[in-house]
Design a protein around this nucleic acid. Sequence first.
DNA 1: CTAGGGTACGTAAGCGCTTACGTAAGCGCT
DNA 2: AGCGCTTACGTAAGCGCTTACGTACCCTAG
Lengths: 344, 344
Amino acid sequence: MSRASHRPRLVDVAEHAAVSLATASRALAGREGVSTEVADRIRQVARELGYVANPYARTLASGATSTVGLIVHQVDDPYFSEIAAGVIQLASEQGLLVQICQSGRDPDYELQQLRHLIAQRVGIVLISGSGYDDPRMESAARAELAAFQDHGGRAAAIGRHALGVDAVLPDNEAGGHALAQHLMDLGHRRIAVAAGSAGLTTVADRLAGVSSALRERGRSPADLAVVNSDFTRGGGRAAAEQILNDHPETTAIIALNDAMAMGVLSTLRSRRVPVPARMSVVGFDDVSVAADLAPSLTTIRLPMTEMGRTALTLALKPRTTRPRRRPTGHLLVVRDSTGPAPRT
Amino acid sequence: MSRASHRPRLVDVAEHAAVSLATASRALAGREGVSTEVADRIRQVARELGYVANPYARTLASGATSTVGLIVHQVDDPYFSEIAAGVIQLASEQGLLVQICQSGRDPDYELQQLRHLIAQRVGIVLISGSGYDDPRMESAARAELAAFQDHGGRAAAIGRHALGVDAVLPDNEAGGHALAQHLMDLGHRRIAVAAGSAGLTTVADRLAGVSSALRERGRSPADLAVVNSDFTRGGGRAAAEQILNDHPETTAIIALNDAMAMGVLSTLRSRRVPVPARMSVVGFDDVSVAADLAPSLTTIRLPMTEMGRTALTLALKPRTTRPRRRPTGHLLVVRDSTGPAPRT
DNA sequence: CTAGGGTACGTAAGCGCTTACGTAAGCGCT
DNA sequence: AGCGCTTACGTAAGCGCTTACGTACCCTAG
């Protein structure tokens, strides 16, 4: 590939402004040690020439990268794409570029992507998606991130804890609690849960909230039918099938994310189970399509886009000694997919 | 930010393998001029040391970037996120990193993002989303891309033409044609179109297909009610409102993309218009949720993920003198949102 | 009037790679 | 034996920046 030069370089700016390279660099970086008039002149010249610093040279010389790496499970999952949208928005405002990696929900591959990003010398790593119960997996990632931070990197997690880095965390437990409570308020007694893969901390947390709500009302958590599948629409369909077959007495299904809820709705529709007349369904996340489904989905709203922005904000701020936790609000959004328990 | 070094450098590899820097570089780049045994030794050492080339130094020295810039309208729009997923997949297989920018459907901002990416010295630019009818806008982008390619950059467009670069293009006209035909086959005579912003080439092309299908059956295109809004769910809702109010005789709505179709369905539901009994609805794109809507959506399937991959493949191949066009297949997927026209 | 210190700027040494060019060794040929 | 050619490797010159350090100048204090 031929050299893509012909673009003005810093020397060109310096020459046109009749100053040295160092002064030009300082002026454009806004560092002190340059008189206001000279700095103005340099900036003016740079603008006229259409000068844009070569980020590769800059990074090589300074060691400070201006690109942020974002790891998601899958970009075409609305939960993650909304997070990505938030990250990209803020990054673009800050003049940063975002590099996206997909882990495909595979902890090994995710670790590999993380290593790759770090090897690529990104300055900031943002890692989203659920953590894994497997302690070996998590500690490998944790170690990688710790080393990265020791070398000056910044990192933050989104919706994920125990990584030893700053995190923006929804209260998954409270969310699960609110959903269960909502259903019990409607009179539901036989509740089933369509859960994502066992082994995901997000699953465990949301489920814990559901269980505790049941316990508070004197129900035995054993009454709760929990079906594990995965956090996709297909997973939701599969879980719904299993629930309908194995737990026919169920009158309400808690899907632990919206993608699964959509799958659940899809199965109920094809099985001609009226929602919410015969079965109530709730989701979790409130991805933007949730409001446009038929029936529209009762769910827990998480501010995904904002979470993305917040995570980047956290990573940009100077590090504190202890990892910070930034909670996110959550809100029970009641729509048409839930209704009173059917009389038996 | 402190220097993130401590990582092995090429000199370290060279020293350990007792060769010169140049030889090490050649061996790892797989270039010739190194005996097989020496090359093997060097690769071995590199592996042991966990050496990963610093992409910034590499790019600075060689001028060849290994990152691809992708411009989409919005990452949290499923159409684009599926394209992005495809690009990221292939890029990751090739060891390339993807930088994503959002243009927010604003031609000016899009141009700005394009300039930004080029200034950032990405090696490949992929630009997706509809083009604009405004010739000034397009020629500015065209010029920018031409200059970029002259300097050795690679570029490709996705679902967009007239940019003077390689393009992977669905046959929007044929798709529109197929939709209209399908509806007419079902007996619909009063068809309305919920179109995206006027001024988008995609809108014009899809609409042209619809019109030509009508013409072939001896219908006047004037019979077609076209309502312009924008390519979002909100746009679809607005368009549907207008259609119901201004064209009450309508029995079928062609939404020019799936996002709008979802908005249309949403409005019809809240206005209690049964689909497809009273109104048929079709979309365009077949985003993955389309099959899970209620009713599931009849639409034109476009292989978005594959389009993303193909575009990157195109850009990776050596350029030809004339821009290449790679058509994509499309397929009418008939689901539950369409049915026979109601008797009046 | 000079020493000391601050300010504004220039000089030059890298950052970690790639690559044009130089060199030495080995080969077949006349 | 001497020539040229190829092959395998080393030397060193950058790529376009940042930044530690050096220098000239002006200001104030003693």
